[in-house]
Each structure stands twice: as structure tokens, then as C-alpha cells.
Write a protein that binds this DNA or RNA. Structure first.
Lengths: 115, 115
DNA sequence: TGCATATTCAACCAAACGGTTGACGATTGC
DNA sequence: GCAATCGTCAACCGTTTGGTTGAATATGCA
């Protein structure tokens, strides 16, 4: 496949604006996954998840590779770089508080209340 | 002062997904601005800008204070903190490359070509 | 008082979004 | 070969988004 088009801030931020898509990205932190497996925990159709994955791929946040009849989804965290740098220009945020991140993961996965 | 409700990742990312709104935030880096002045450089109605500002305020990215008949808009960069931390959990991005940020500002403000 | 300025409101519009369902093309395995 | 599995496509649906216009509401000023 041709070198991925540089993901725009528009598409990256828009992709990240949906909680389902953020949850998918979080799942992919663990490991690459097949589309069906990505869809499993969600209460929506496979087709809907497939669309979300297309949007994530469009933003460059994941890549998809078909092996046999299974399509594998792989996280591409570098796609967040531009957006991350952009935001950091607005203030020096604490040098990556991983504790806070763990908590975010909890709420993102729906383990906690939204407050 | 009542602590503002914690802006959600949904609203923050959605607010940042629009180029007009990102440009507004960039303008507000310089200084607080009145609504009319914010609208001036854009080729769209004042009402449209007013809506964008409402969305930015809803995400906590700006606050608005009315003094006399003028409503002042103030950047609130801390509202990006949660989103920034969330993204950093996906990879350690270079510790704030300000050069890159300057370049982003250029393209965001439409001073350079998109490519 | 009366007019200009600053901003929002209300109604409307086309397009995009997020979801559904059912049919379909590929691939795998018995 | 045939049935099951994987994933997307196409059509459809209601809601949201990003914009418009024109009227309305405050406020400032001469």
C-alpha cells in the first residue's frame, strides 16, 4: 500500500471524539485484533464496528491487514503525534502522569461511572 | 468560584475536530478577545462564530465573560489536559517540540499551504 | 431620547454521523 | 461440494453539525 497520507488534525480529532472508537484504540493497546473480536464487547452490530474501524484507519490511527478471511487491526499510535504536539503547544501538561492514564482507561472501558 | 464541570473527552475532542475552532484557540493564545474580533478574520457570519464559541465553552476550552456589551473570550488550556494525558498513554511523544508547534500554527492560521 | 454596536436567538437548510438490516463476496474446513 | 465464518456493501433512518438569514435583546453614546 502507498505510504499512508499524513493524517490531518481534523480526522484524528474527529476519530477520537467518539467513545466507541477510543475504547477500540484502548483495546488495541493490548494486542492486534480481528474485526470480529474488536466488535465482541460492544452492544452494536458488526457493521457499525466495521465503520468505526474504517474511520480510525482513515485517521491513520490503525492499519488493517487481511490474512485469509480475517482482517487484523493494529494500533498506530504515531498518528496521534501531530495532535499531541498541537495540544502541548497550549500548555506544558504534567510529564505524562501514568496513574491518571490508568484511571482514564478504567472509565473509557466503562468500568467506572462517567461522573 | 464553582469548579467547572470536568470537560469530557467527547466534547473536547469534538471541539478540536473543527479547523475554525482550532484557529480560534490559536488566536486566543495571543490574548483575550471580544466575539466580534474573533469573528473578524473568518469568512463566515458572526452567528456562526458565536456558535463555535459556545461549543468551545461547552468543552471548557474557553470561558466567556461579559463586560458591558462586549463578551470577552479567554483561553482555558487546562481543559486539554485530560485529552493530552489520554493520548500520551499511547506513546511517549517527543517532549514538546516547539519548532513543530510553530509550524502547526502557521498551517492552522492558513498562512502556509496545506501540504 | 434615539441610534449604533455587540451578541444571541430562531428558523431553516444540506450534509455528515452513527446506527440498523439484509444481501453479498471471500475464505475456511468438514 | 457445501456450510459456516469473516467482513463489507447498500440502502435506509433519525439526529447532529455547520452554516445561513433576519429578528430580537442588551448596552453604550451623543
Amino acid at each position: 500500500m502507498a505510504p499512508r497520507p499524513r493524517p490531518s488534525l481534523d480526522t484524528v480529532f474527529a476519530a477520537l471524539a467518539d467513545p466507541t472508537r477510543r475504547a477500540i484504540l484502548t483495546m488495541l493497546l493490548e494486542d492486534d485484533m480481528a474485526v470480529t473480536d474488536v466488535a465482541e464487547p460492544f452492544e452494536m452490530s458488526l457493521a457499525a464496528i466495521s465503520k468505526h474501524l474504517t474511520i480510525l484507519a482513515g485517521a491513520g490511527l490503525i492499519t488493517q491487514e487481511k490474512r485469509g478471511r480475517v482482517k487484523w487491526c493494529k494500533l498506530e499510535p504515531d498518528a496521534m503525534k501531530g495532535a499531541s504536539v498541537w495540544m502541548q503547544g497550549f500548555g506544558q501538561f504534567e510529564p505524562v502522569n501514568l496513574d491518571a492514564f490508568e484511571r482514564f482507561l478504567g472509565t473509557e472501558l466503562g468500568l467506572g461511572s462517567e461522573e
